[in-house]
Write a protein that binds this DNA or RNA. Structure first.
Length: 420
DNA sequence: TCTGGGGTCCTAGGACCC
DNA sequence: TCTGGGGTCCTAGGACCC
């Protein structure tokens, strides 16, 4: 019999912060988005105080946070990525086939593993990860991905491990599980299901008019319905190359000049091109956008966006920056207060499938230069070398007033332990 | 004063072909 | 009343995820 396991780190960003700050264990913790704009991660203690609302603006909750002595952190993605890698590496010991679904969760294929006690297996996964990384996780195991996801969610309230094996047990759980909490059923879909009188996962599972589900929720919805019935439709995915990639940021301070937007776009292109090279791909088109602050009432709003096509595929940072600046020339309007900009790289193909331009005078596309730059930055730290187009002042840069140290990725931030 | 960022999948509809 | 039929490819936009 085939089973799927889902391992999900509890309040992942907050838990990472706690690993290196043992004194805040037990204390409520939240982590903020870029620019310290709003709250995006919460421990259960913070949720219990009513702070669970995703993207609540910091300035609205700040007083209350202080009053309840909540520990507040800016997001520290280099720390989270590093700890994520450690967690995933441990999980590879537990399955021949691991699908890393996001920074804090992964599916495990457990084909034929029901010979063992799956509950004990889940407990072992949990204790190993806690012991070696300090991160608490929940483990859900069942017959399909959707069911394992559900088991995982419930497991967090009951000791961290839940195995759903036999049908009566599954139905019992489904009857109490709200349809909007099912993985893949968002707001739009749950509204439609509610209109059909479907409120629980069990009612969805047993709803007979499949044509209707197909029409309202498309193929995706039908697959979820079958997954609830124990029929596996969603297989284990291999890690594949990204089909789109990009980089965008809200600015730490308002931006008015074209010059600063050029810098910001250059930086976003630099990051995106490096991602492209890391997966040995090239892109054929680039989209860039700039816009004002939509939350700011009474100020003039503007949204500029356009694309640029390359004759041959490229992962050349300099060429991509140049493209973004050509777009900016078209979309820039002076007199606006800009708050955000970004780039997207589209039509991505593997580098060895690149159609070269017959008349290109520089067919190697600065490929070697890119590789050398990537190597240097990997060895000596991000941004050791970058294009001068990114600027040196960068007043628009993201604000992070509560950032913890790069405990695991920077030598100067490594913990010092005093003996005696 | 202050409101995140990065992805995937699916479908409808247009353009185009014979 | 009637206006061919069948197909592919691409893109924009919606929905969802963490």
């Amino acid at each position: 019999m085939r089973y799927f396991g889902l391992v999900d780190c509890n309040s992942f960003y907050c838990s990472c912060e706690r690993v290196f700050r043992p004194e805040i264990r037990g204390r409520p913790v939240i982590v903020l988005s870029n620019n310290d704009g709003c709250a995006i991660a919460f421990t259960k203690e913070a949720k219990a105080l009513g702070f669970g609302e995703m993207c609540a603006p910091l300035y609205q909750i700040q007083d209350s946070l202080r009053k309840h002595n909540v520990a507040v952190f800016s997001s520290n993605y280099s720390l989270y990525d590093n700890i994520s890698r450690r967690v995933m590496s441990i999980l590879t010991n537990f399955t021949p086939h691991l699908e890393i679904y996001s920074v804090d969760e992964a599916f495990l294929e457990l084909d034929g593993f029901d010979k063992f006690d799956l509950f004990d297996y889940g407990k072992k996964i949990r204790s190993d990860i806690l012991q070696f990384t300090g991160i608490p996780v929940g483990v859900g195991i069942s017959k399909t991905k959707v069911l394992s996801k559900m088991a995982n969610k419930i497991s967090k309230k009951q000791g961290g491990v839940l195995v759903l094996k036999d049908d009566d047990e599954i139905d019992h759980v489904l009857k109490k599980f709200p349809v909007e909490d099912i993985w893949g059923i968002g707001r739009a879909s749950s509204t439609k299901l509610n209109m059909l009188g479907i409120k629980t996962a069990y009612e969805f599972k047993t709803y007979q008019n499949e044509r209707m589900i197909q029409n309202l929720l498309t193929k995706t919805g039908r697959q979820i319905q079958d997954e609830l019935r124990g029929i596996s439709c969603l297989s284990m995915d291999k890690a594949e190359d990204k089909k789109n990639t990009g980089n965008s940021r809200s600015f730490g301070a308002s931006v008015y000049t074209k010059r600063e937007l050029q810098e910001a776009l250059a930086e976003f292109c630099t990051n995106s091109a490096a991602k492209l090279r890391a997966q040995k791909s090239v892109c054929y088109s680039l989209t860039a956008f700039i816009h004002t602050n939509p939350f700011k009432d009474g100020s003039a709003q503007y949204y500029g966006i356009d694309s640029h096509n390359f004759v041959s595929g490229t992962s050349d940072t300099l060429r991509i920056i140049k493209g973004s600046h050509q777009i900016l020339d078209k979309i820039f309007r002076s007199g606006y207060e800009y708050k955000k900009a970004g780039v997207l790289l589209n039509h991505i193909v593997p580098r060895d499938q690149n159609q070269m331009d017959l008349f290109d005078k520089n067919p190697d596309d600065n490929e070697k230069l890119g590789q050398v730059v990537d190597l240097i930055n990997k060895r000596y730290g991000a941004k050791t070398i970058q294009s001068a187009a990114c600027g040196s002042n960068q007043a628009w840069r993201t604000v992070a007033n509560f950032r913890s140290a790069k405990y695991t990725t920077s030598w100067k931030d490594i913990l010092r332990i005093k003996l005696g």
